[in-house]
């Protein structure tokens, strides 16, 4: 598709880019959740584990 105006071209590329950004966030969370799904529970404050 021919773009005569740089602004129009940018509108097109940036719209795709924002959608990609949304996918990045979801994707990272997904891969992280998957990777840590079998980790031992994290005990950040062991002194509280006494309960």
């Amino acid at each position: 598709m021919e773009y005569y105006v740089y602004h129009d071209f940018m509108m097109h590329t940036k719209s795709i880019t924002y959608i990609l950004m949304g996918l990045f966030v979801v994707g990272f969370w997904g891969i992280w959740a998957f990777m840590t799904s079998r980790d031992e529970e994290i005990h950040k404050f062991p002194e509280h584990d006494k309960e």
Binding site: Y3, Y4, V5, Y6, F9, M10
Partner: peptide, 11 residues
């Protein structure tokens, strides 16, 4: 930059 494209406006 927008690589090797040029934008010359509507003809």
């Amino acid at each position: 930059q927008a690589s090797s494209k040029s934008f010359d406006g509507y003809p």
